[in-house]
Design a protein around this nucleic acid. Structure first.
Ligand SMILES: [Mn+2]
Ligand SMILES: [Mn+2]
Ligand SMILES: [Zn+2]
Ligand SMILES: [Zn+2]
Lengths: 140, 140
DNA sequence: TTCTCTTTGCAACTTAGTTGCGATTTTGGG
DNA sequence: CCCAAAATCGCAACTAAGTTGCAAAGAGAA
């Protein structure tokens, strides 16, 4: 898995540093978008500084290895780009009661037709609703 | 137009106060989602306090008269709900160069099929790309 | 190894949005 | 119209995610 991270960095002409490899590995382990804080938590006492994590994430976003998946509250959640199509990410579902968010993989929507002269880089879909756990709770 | 605002409040069982009517009217005049600051600006020296604007917006969101349309940077942009479908808002396009956002009215995508047991309240589409102005600038 | 350019850590900062609370306003009933 | 209860408002202080400046450490090319 470390090899995998190293390869990603090399393919994007980014220097191979401890923080970058650790952050990429943390994101590979995750099965949902993660915040700066979750990355730091996962890496424990050896985690890079908060500033470094943010700067690294922004570099990875610029190279299109990572996407800003969504904001919840005031915090960004990032995920590896390797499960997203060229012009479209998979949708994300947020339960408006428990506020948990999960990926909805394997589906996509047709790309919206933009006005004349506009270019699409990426289309993202966000769904708000009630997850099954919360729905059952409300039943009573 | 004031009548219109009053009617919205009455239909949602909200007390008719100066700040609420003013904020609704400001949003009716706008032709794109607005921030707290833009509302205050538009209302000039008579604008309600920042806290009141935020609290009002949240009340209106709770009553589904207003939607949180999108976040840009760290700031929420709100818009009246009356141009949105039951389960879907119109898409919003953000130019990744000039950072301007605009509504893409009149189009919609099929609703994503959720996992068993999940309920959809609202589906939102966000598009990132290059607007025509920025595209032409880059041509040179 | 050495030199240069990039990256990192730390501490201080920024700022959109929130909170607590006392003062004011709305509204419904008498 | 007048009053009291409950909702709303304004203000000042606060919160916390993310940013910035800068000096120290590290990566990679030669
Ligand atoms: Mn995802
Ligand atoms: Mn809109
Ligand atoms: Zn839930
Ligand atoms: Zn543009």
């Amino acid at each position: 898995m470390k090899q995998n991270a190293v390869e990603l960095l090399r393919s994007s002409n980014l220097r191979q540093t401890g923080p970058r490899i650790a952050i990429l590995m943390a994101m590979m382990k995750a099965n949902a978008p993660v915040t700066q804080e979750q990355i730091a938590e996962q890496l424990g006492p050896l985690a890079p500084n908060k500033t470094t994590i943010y700067r690294t994430l922004m570099n990875l976003v610029k190279k299109n290895l990572v996407h800003k998946a969504y904001i919840e509250g005031r915090t960004w959640h990032f995920e590896l780009a390797h499960h997203c199509g060229q012009h479209q990410c998979h949708p994300h579902f947020t339960c408006s009661q428990c506020l948990q968010t999960r990926c909805i993989p394997g589906v996509s929507a047709p790309l919206i037709k933009l006005p004349e002269g506009f270019t699409m880089h990426r289309q993202q879909i966000r769904i708000e609703g009630l997850c099954s756990v919360c729905r059952n709770k409300n039943r009573r």
